[in-house]
Nucleic acid binder design. Structure first.
Lengths: 346, 346
DNA sequence: GGCGCGTGGTAGAGCGCTCTCCTGCCGTGT
DNA sequence: ACACGGCAGGAGAGCGCTCTACCACGCGCC
């Protein structure tokens, strides 16, 4: 790459036409004589021309990227920062988000810039990046209900779409799941299986989704003669699922059915159950949530409430596209329906 | 964002200096009178100025991004494309790569653009993106030994660094692990535990790393009186680990120690072992590879050969930086040492 | 036959920044 | 006192592209 890259000018000279004509051919805009089109294309071929993105961006004020931000709320120290990315991607959930986003972006020749915003410093960097025109908008996945990033983005007037309804109302579009229905689905399945002593391991109760999954689960059980359901709070990790299950078992050894608010915790719960001599699903039935990859890789394979993460992520990207193009100005929300997937654990 | 964003010109006017001076203050280049610096900074504050990346890129010919490419070798159909991302990130390995890369990039205000290159079409797109100046270079993680992308990149003269030595020699820098030593470490540990009938589940034997882990394992055992070691080939997934373990067990029911070429397969092997009534580690000891997050979340926790993926990824980013800056012109390789991490499975 | 009109092309003005060159002004040495 | 080096700040030329004019030309129309 030592010698200068060819420019539009070079191609134009080579083809014997003007810069504008070449530009039109490249961008497929306006009518250009087929013969000339061919001429130009041949010249492009010969010169090995590739349009300069920076120059194009400068005039169109559009990039070919969107920021894909995984956001926390903490004040993590510098040393913890790298670990954040590792930790985040340890949950198969994020891989699915990436898959969904890329699925929408790719056919449009757009690409995601990966950013992490778990500290005030990092959040500033994200906003700065957007303001400098590094990306056209942001797709935000928060890991914490008090995440200040959405408000920052909305305040800066940047196009942004969230995964899940923000803790505090923010004038931004988002996609979400009917979590309450998910809880209901889990309850109904446990009931149908004949569970008499259901319990649940929730996600962090500060998270709205956890609250709603619990509410759906609880309400459904209450309606079927189970006014009091043992509850233990977890943190969406395997370890927290183990701890929660252990405490549940200590206080309610007769538990015969557990709904855990995600698959990772279900995995932990199953392990603890086994360690305590319970067979799953014979002695205790376990229903997870998400239908992530671990649901099929762990044994027994998990019966779980499916969250269509890829679809949700793709929709998120579509909404952002609309906002960027100006085709949509009002914040919108799209809510997806969960679905029960029956496997071996319940 | 309806009204025009402020430009250098606006700040200059506001501060009563020239554009060049403002630019110098912003970029911290050359000496500028402290009083004037202050004046300019205040003007920036007031106007809410943010430098336009596109304009800057146009003249400096440098972006603030590098491509982080996960690459395959296949001709996957369109419908499989989205799944590729999901599948890739189901392995905790990639999350660690991202963590390491971001750890290096972030302090330098650089960001990774995530790209997937599992089809010829997608590979072309990656090369085109780089040639158009969308990113300054590429960090490539191949999932397949015959991946044509490295050669494409080298041919185009694009700065690029690979994770793992490429199948065919390519004049590109890379980082890698001393896989052979890893195999040796596993063998030695199994031997020390008193295993009499060791066996191994390898990765895809087309992958050099799999070959070397196997060679290291085999050679060490041979040197200690085990000239023949049962081998089953896996595919680095939980399922393939299960299948491989099952076949191993069928032919060699007296196996008392297994080295699996990654942790995911170790997890699968443990499950199959359990299903066949073997206790781990009492009846059969299992040593994994990678020290990924599953090593500590699964039960029993895995004894495994640690691969310092984050460090390796960070080094990859550093090498790329050097190449981009021109501080390094010759392809270089950096080889890391594996380390045995003893937990419960062996 | 002049005129409007659609078609296919050119010319050239920016987009916002960096960076080289230049100028004016000090301090210093002889 | 004067030449001169060094340094701070300004002027202005691009970087490579898009896009709005604008022009040339041929056609059908009254």
């Amino acid at each position: 790459m030592s010698r200068q890259a060819p420019t539009l000018e070079d191609v134009a000279r080579e083809a014997g036409v003007s810069r504008a004509t070449v530009s039109r051919v490249v961008n497929g805009v306006r009518n250009v004589d087929p013969a000339i089109q061919d001429l130009v294309r041949r010249a492009i071929e010969r010169t090995g021309y590739a349009p300069n993105q920076a120059a194009r961006q400068l005039v169109t004020r559009r990039t070919t990227t969107v920021a894909l931000v995984v956001s926390g709320a903490g004040d993590a120290s510098d040393t913890e920062q790298n670990a954040f990315a590792t930790r985040v991607f340890a949950d198969p959930f994020f891989g699915r988000v990436v898959g969904g986003v890329v699925g929408h972006l790719r056919p449009r020749r757009m690409h995601p810039v990966l950013m992490f915003a778990e500290t005030p410093e990092a959040r500033r960097e994200v906003v700065a990046y957007l303001r400098q025109g590094g990306a056209d908008g942001a797709l935000v996945v928060s890991t914490h209900p008090d995440d200040p990033l959405p408000a920052l983005l909305a305040g800066a007037g940047m196009p942004a779409v969230l995964f899940a309804r923000p803790g505090r109302p923010v004038p931004l579009s988002y996609v979400d799941l009917a979590h309450r229905d998910g809880g209901r689905l889990a309850a109904e399945h446990l009931l149908e299986r004949g569970c008499r002593r259901p319990a649940t391991v929730t996600g962090p109760l500060a998270v709205a989704a956890s609250q709603e999954r619990l509410a759906g689960f609880r309400d459904t059980l209450a309606r079927h003669g189970h006014p009091h359901v043992p509850v233990a709070e977890g943190g969406f990790t395997v370890d927290s699922g183990m701890a929660a299950m252990a405490s549940l078992l200590a206080e309610h050894p007769d538990t015969d059915g557990v709904f855990t608010a995600n698959d990772l915790m279900a995995q932990g719960a199953v392990q603890v159950l086994r360690d305590h001599g319970r067979r799953v699903p014979q002695d205790v039935a376990v229903v997870g949530f998400d239908d992530s990859s671990v649901a099929v890789t762990c044994r027994p394979r998990l019966t779980t409430v499916r969250q269509p993460v890829e679809e949700m992520a793709a929709t998120m990207a579509r909404l952002l596209d609309d906002h960027i193009k100006g085709a949509r100005t009002e914040p919108t929300s799209v809510i997806f329906d969960p679905e029960l997937v029956v496997r071996d654990s319940a």
